[in-house]
C-alpha cells in the first residue's frame, strides 16, 4: 500500500517527462477486405510537461518512415501516400489535467498527419512502474480522408477510411 502511494505520487510529479523511445511503440492499423494491416514504430519521441497545478502538455511524434509492417512494398506505398518528403512526422499534441493517483487521463488532443491537423481526444491509461517511470497506453481512430490521404487499394478495393492509432509509451520522469 505504501509502495502504491509512493508510485501514485511519482506519477503526478511536476516537471518534464521524456519518452523512452527504446521502450515505447507507436502503431497504426487499417483494414482491407483481404488484409488487416498494422505497422509499428520504435522511434517515437516525446515529452510531457506537468505543471505544479496538474496541467499537462504532451507532444509525441514519430517518423513516418519508421512505421514498419513487415512488408516492404506496403511500407513503401505507405510512404508514398503519406508524402513523406513534405510530412516526415506524425505528431500528436495534447492538453489535460493530471491529479495524484490518476490511473486514467483524458487528453484533448490534436493529431497532425499528412500535414493536416485534426482533433483527437484520447483516453490514456497510466501505470506507474517500479523504477519510477510511467507506462502510458491508449488508442484513437483517425480518418484517412479527413487528413487528405489517398487510401491505398488492392484489387480495386480501397482500405477502410478508419485508421486506429495505438500508443504504448514509457515516460521517464524529471531527475
Amino acid at each position: 500500500m505504501l509502495i502504491a502511494l509512493i508510485l501514485a505520487s511519482a506519477a503526478a510529479a511536476p516537471g518534464t517527462w521524456t519518452v523512452d523511445s527504446a521502450q515505447s511503440a507507436l502503431r497504426y492499423a487499417v483494414n482491407h477486405k483481404l488484409h488487416k494491416v498494422d505497422a509499428t514504430s520504435k522511434e517515437a519521441e516525446g515529452k510531457a510537461v506537468v505543471r505544479p497545478d496538474g496541467t499537462l502538455m504532451v507532444e509525441v511524434r514519430a517518423p513516418v518512415a519508421s512505421l514498419k509492417s513487415g512488408d516492404c512494398n506496403r511500407d513503401e506505398h505507405m510512404l508514398e501516400v503519406m508524402n513523406v518528403c513534405a510530412h516526415p512526422f506524425v505528431v500528436f499534441k495534447g492538453l489535460g489535467h493530471l491529479a495524484h493517483g490518476d490511473a486514467q487521463l483524458q487528453l484533448q488532443g490534436q493529431i497532425e498527419l499528412h500535414g493536416v491537423k485534426a482533433p483527437a481526444p484520447v483516453s490514456l491509461s497510466l501505470e506507474a512502474q517500479p523504477d519510477g517511470s510511467l507506462r502510458v497506453k491508449g488508442s484513437f481512430d483517425v480518418s484517412l480522408d479527413a487528413h487528405g490521404i489517398e487510401r491505398p487499394s488492392l484489387l480495386f478495393a480501397k482500405v477502410d477510411d478508419a485508421c486506429r492509432i495505438e500508443v504504448d509509451l514509457l515516460l521517464r520522469g524529471p531527475k
Binding site: 519521441e45 516525446g46 515529452k47 518512415a65 508514398e80 513523406v84 513534405a86 495534447g94
Partner: peptide, 21 residues
C-alpha cells in the same frame, strides 16, 4: 495546442518525390 516541446528535426529519409510518383 500551438506549443512545441520537441526540437525541430530534419526529415530522416531523403526521397525523390517524382520517382515515388
Amino acid at each position: 495546442l500551438d506549443f512545441e516541446l520537441l526540437d525541430a528535426k530534419k526529415p530522416l529519409v531523403p526521397v525523390d518525390d517524382a520517382a515515388i510518383r
